[in-house]
């Protein structure tokens, strides 16, 4: 009975993961496909990987994407972390208002967020890379706040007070006692911001100016011309990078656990 249950569970999870990873598998296969067609297998090749660095359209879009992602995630992390500390110390109803406002970009439809930001930017500044960064910060900060805030809430106030009690100034106490506890939350907030920024299409699409293209928007505009196979190579590389990072993080934290248990 129990065996049947375990087997059913395993099969079910296998189907779910097959569903989630099937397109990724297809794209990885396409990146080695020696044919311009998406549907015909023309043999194994590495030429798309070799050509990738010389494809200016893709490399431009890649660097634009990276610039936007790194700038917006870093700024969102700083803004969000300091906001989380501030909100944590606010009076209850002030904090509730701030959290309500923080929920707006998360709950609002992307298309509405994108359009409303576009209307604002066209009025006060021009559309371009800068406006995309502003837009990305706007939808990334909530992820940082909601990753940092729980860590603050789970920390007892008495650690901070204990540091003060032992002679630390408030700033020293924050740096030595609160900050080390916040780091995991800040990191996962940053990671979420990076992921959301990399994966965003809709908001970028509305807030970018002419001539600015991230990987997503470039793909969308060039759909009719057909996809350059170098893109498969690039996204396979990006995916592998993330995969390896995940393995390292997982391996490290498992080591940590083993160490703690001993």
């Amino acid at each position: 009975m129990k065996k049947i249950k375990t087997a059913t569970s395993a099969i079910y999870m296998a189907i779910i993961f097959l569903f989630l990873y099937a397109p990724i598998f297809v794209l990885i296969v396409l990146s080695f496909n020696d044919s311009m067609s998406r549907t015909v297998w023309g043999g194994f090749t590495l030429q798309w990987y070799a050509n990738l660095p010389f494809n200016d359209t893709i490399m431009d879009a890649l660097f634009t994407t990276l610039r936007i992602t790194i700038c917006s995630s870093l700024l969102a992390t700083v803004l969000g972390t300091s906001a989380a500390v501030g909100i944590h110390h606010m009076k209850k109803h002030h904090a509730a208002i701030m959290l309500g406002a923080t929920n707006i970009p998360l709950l609002n439809a992307d298309i509405v967020t994108g359009i409303s930001l576009m209307l604002l930017f066209t009025r006060f500044t021009s559309l371009g890379e800068f406006s995309v960064v502003l837009a990305h910060i706007t939808f990334s900060v909530p992820y940082v706040i909601f990753n940092v805030l729980p860590r603050l809430q789970s920390m007892s106030d008495s650690c901070f007070e204990a540091a003060m009690d032992l002679g630390a100034s408030p700033a020293y106490a924050f740096y030595k006692v609160i900050w080390p506890e916040l780091i995991p939350g800040v990191l996962s907030g940053f990671l979420m911001a990076v992921t959301m920024s990399l994966d965003d299409f809709t908001i970028t699409y509305f807030t970018k100016g002419a001539g600015v293209n991230t990987l997503s928007t470039m793909l969308y505009t060039e759909l009719r011309k057909g996809i350059q196979p170098e893109l498969y190579a690039l996204s396979t590389l990006l995916f592998l990078l993330a995969f390896v990072m995940l393995l390292i993080i997982n391996f490290k934290s498992r080591n940590q656990e083993v160490k703690n248990e001993n």
Binding site: C159, E161, A162, A163
Partner: peptide, 14 residues
Amino acid sequence: PINTVFQKYALFPH
């Protein structure tokens, strides 16, 4: 010049 022993110890976990 006063120090406190806190109820839940408040040791720095890191």
